[in-house]
Design a binder for these strands. Structure first.
Lengths: 340, 340
DNA sequence: ATTTGTGTTGAAAACCTTTTCATGAAATTT
DNA sequence: AAATTTCATGAAAAGGTTTTCAACACAAAT
């Protein structure tokens, strides 16, 4: 590679001091036309590009935001990313992407590395790090916006997940379903979606069955395998609450391969309303969350926090993001005679 | 925010010199156990994190790769990104994402900014910058891998686009279609997909009609509008070659809304085989390209180039990426009696 | 007892900027 | 004409590291 030139080279070629070069390039102090002309010419000739790192070292700003995100396969995340990207790029910030693969070790490692890079802020999506650890690692050290994370500090963005899943489950119940399964992930810790699911069953007196709650993490294979197992049960469910659309889609595919018709023989309700959910084999009935807008909000917010040096020492949330249930074609009312 | 501590603070607290701290942290030179113990303790107490920028300033490595990508909405790109991310993260590199929105001005701006940031390398996807400009901007200055870009220097990754589109079109022809449209973008410059399309028509003596070539850029709205116009023609095509799956999907949706059945009344063949193309309303027949693998390849290659300081002054391509035509359900053989 | 070698260490230069401070010249005021 | 203000400029410090060089203490070899 060609040697890249420095401000020194420019100064020498233009026959002025380093400070003068800096001044004309940044417009900080007036400089004589004569000098600035010489500088511009030298910059042109040398194709000089100021070293952003040296600059950041002084300004203590990197114009970089780290996005900690579990995965890029579930379309939810790229869609969110798109929103974030849109919001921050117009303010001149850049995004550095850290793919955690749902691993808390990786997440921890990446957060530390980003801290070393002195990024101006973090957008942490679906964190899998414990609250204590999170507090110890980032609280008071940098600006953070959490999306779908349950941190007890910092700015938090998400919808009311309990209520939303409650609504989804209620919908299935109201459509006459009595045998309702849920498939999702991370049932050990706090799981708002599971909580909403349980709450609805309880409130409407629908039997809860342990064998109807399917924990399959985030891998397509596991979802497929567990779904097959679930649907092979002698007394299989007539409705499934999937904790996200990605899962719902995998379930639909598994059902299709088993020759089970949706929604005639199996109803599915999803969660997220990712952009493809309405162009599927069977358009998906789902909880719609304004993904793109959430991304934009997160992007705007992190910049606001950075600029104003706000620090949320307690959990802060302006309000829950609104969501809505979108009826499409993956859920069917149970036949009257089949009820019970 | 808390004041972040520097190597100086550590040195002072541990009562050793700066150099010693650096040495124990980097393991460059042996240090007495006594000293290193003190250093580790001080690091712990101060929660010291070395400033990556100061470090890069010396090492001249940022461990950062810029990905210049036109868009995040077309699923092709997140999928590619996933591959790139997978390949580079295991080598300790991070990705900075630059979303150009298909605008060459933005692309230029971002490339320059990334040059200022002294990223170790670039992966430029579907560039819309002219060859001369590209040469002037990056040739010899940094490591680059191009994906789907037609640069006459640097490492280039893509499949044989002419042949692939030729095959797609040929397929439609062999299925008995005589009235074939194509819908895509950027017809002014070099457009390999268009070239392949034309070549097939010519070779198999199928009428070429100017009103059957639809240029709609990359926006869903334009695709939808132009498709509606196309399908409202008195003598509308029976088959469409879409230059990518994203476009094919938009066409399918438009057709659906017009009450036109696919494939009975209209056949569509796509290009890319993005992961959702087989779970659509009508599973899409398409040219399958190993998107994820291409991403991985691009990631591996850029690191190899960075590490070995290779510089491809001419276009270099190991070989064209293999592709295949995947038959699904969006194309139908024309009825014999309808032929002609 | 002198030389040679080994193992630890600190001072200072280097990386590339921005910014403060001081200086000197020119222009303005008294 | 002297005093003051304004303007343009350069030298040097600062930002936080790594690395080179020199120095020192001590052990080993002559």
């Amino acid at each position: 590679m060609d040697k890249v030139s420095t401000i020194k080279d420019v100064a020498k070629l233009a026959n002025v001091s380093i400070s003068t070069v800096s001044r004309v390039l940044n417009g900080t102090t007036p400089v004589s036309k004569e000098s600035s002309d010489k500088v511009y010419k030298a910059v042109e000739v040398l194709d000089y590009k100021p070293n952003a790192m040296a600059r950041s070292l002084i300004s203590k700003k990197t114009m970089t935001i780290a996005v900690i995100i579990p995965n890029l396969s579930n379309l939810f995340f790229p869609e969110l990313l798109r929103g974030i990207s849109k919001a921050v790029e117009k303010e001149g910030y850049f995004l550095i992407i850290c793919n955690t693969d749902y691993s808390s070790e990786k997440e921890e490692k990446y957060i530390n590395q980003m801290l070393e890079r002195r990024v101006d802020g973090f957008i942490i999506v679906s964190s899998s790090i414990s609250n204590e650890k999170l507090t110890q690692m980032v609280k008071g050290k940098t600006s953070v916006v959490f999306v779908y994370s349950y941190a007890d500090f910092g700015y938090n963005i998400m919808e009311d997940g309990i209520k939303a899943t409650y609504d989804a489950t209620k919908y299935l119940i109201h459509m006459g379903h009595k045998k309702i399964a849920c498939v999702g992930w991370r049932f050990k810790g706090v799981n708002v979606r599971y909580m909403g699911f349980r709450k609805a069953l309880e409130e409407f007196n629908v039997d809860f069955r342990n064998e109807y709650v399917i924990d399959c993490g985030y891998s397509k294979e596991e979802i497929t395998n567990n779904t097959i197992k679930l649907l092979k049960m002698k007394d299989r469910p007539t409705g499934i609450v999937a904790f996200n659309d990605d899962t719902a889609i995998a379930i639909m595919m598994a059902a299709k391969n088993m020759g089970i018709n949706i929604p005639e023989e199996l109803s599915i309700i999803g969660y997220d309303n990712i952009s493809i959910s309405n162009i599927l084999l069977k358009p998906l009935t789902t909880i719609s969350v304004p993904i793109h807008k959430m991304g934009v909000d997160a992007g705007k917010k992190i910049i606001e926090i950075i600029d104003n040096g706000i620090s949320y020492s307690d959990t802060y949330r302006e309000k829950y993001i609104p969501y809505e249930l979108i009826e499409r074609e993956s859920v069917k009312a149970m036949d009257i005679d089949k009820l019970n």
